[in-house]
Structures are given as structure tokens and as C-alpha cells.
């Protein structure tokens, strides 16, 4: 189990990795979304705001209208932001649930593919 603060820490690291990656920023420049993350075991929720490929903020709680909702065990979410797991594999095996368009789901996969190509 991961605490809310641990997940926030992982999110902050994820943000740094994304925003610092020029290639990724250019690639994702047409992607403006609000994402909600929900840890099903602890009940914690998080909101990530992305504008033109840049992660503007990560906040605790579910704010605004989400384009994508990602649900999973707190530990799984944490591992995902640390780059320890392949989120799409988890998704296809039903270990994380994603509500949103297939296109957005593939975009999320593309981000992780660029940051952690070996995962």
C-alpha cells in the first residue's frame, strides 16, 4: 500500500520527467486533458492537469471534469509513476481500469514509452 503523500511524490517525479523531455513535449503538444487517478484500496484521489503536453499540476482530490479516470491499487499507481510497470499491460490484464477514449489511453502509453522505453 502507498500513502497519499508517496503517490504525490511519485507524481511530482513523473511531472518532472515529462516536462523536462523536449521530445515528449513536442510530441504531446496537441494533448490538453484533465486526468483523475483513484487508489481503490485507500480511497485517495488525485487530479493531474495537462495543457498542450505540459503537466501543469498534480493535486490531491478529484477536481474538475476528467477526460480520463485511472483506477488501481495505490501501490500499482505508484509503480506506474515511478516507471516500474508497463501501464498498458496492467490495463489489458484488468489490473488497472481506465475510463476514457482509446486514443487518450494510447497517449498515456506513448508518454511512458518515451520516458521508460525499456519497460
Amino acid at each position: 500500500m502507498a500513502t497519499s503523500d508517496e503517490i504525490m511524490e511519485a507524481l511530482a517525479d513523473f511531472k518532472e520527467q515529462c516536462n523536462g523531455n523536449k521530445r515528449l513535449r513536442r510530441m504531446q503538444r496537441d494533448w490538453t486533458k484533465v486526468l483523475h487517478y483513484a487508489a481503490v484500496d485507500t480511497g485517495d484521489k488525485f487530479t493531474m492537469t495537462v495543457r498542450e503536453g505540459e503537466i501543469l499540476s498534480n493535486e490531491k482530490g478529484a477536481a474538475g471534469t476528467p477526460d480520463v479516470i485511472i483506477e488501481g491499487e495505490s501501490e500499482t499507481l505508484c509503480n506506474m509513476f515511478w516507471g516500474d510497470i508497463n501501464p498498458t499491460q496492467m490495463y489489458l490484464k484488468g489490473e488497472i481500469k481506465v475510463k476514457g477514449t482509446q486514443e487518450d489511453i494510447m497517449r498515456i502509453d506513448a508518454i511512458t514509452a518515451i520516458i521508460w522505453p525499456e519497460v
Binding site: R26, Q28, R107, I114
Partner: peptide, 9 residues
Amino acid sequence: SDFLYSHPF
């Protein structure tokens, strides 16, 4: 080819 990451299909 980066364009194909964000739009593979």
C-alpha cells in the same frame, strides 16, 4: 518518427 509515438495508428 516521434509523431508516430503520439499517433501510432
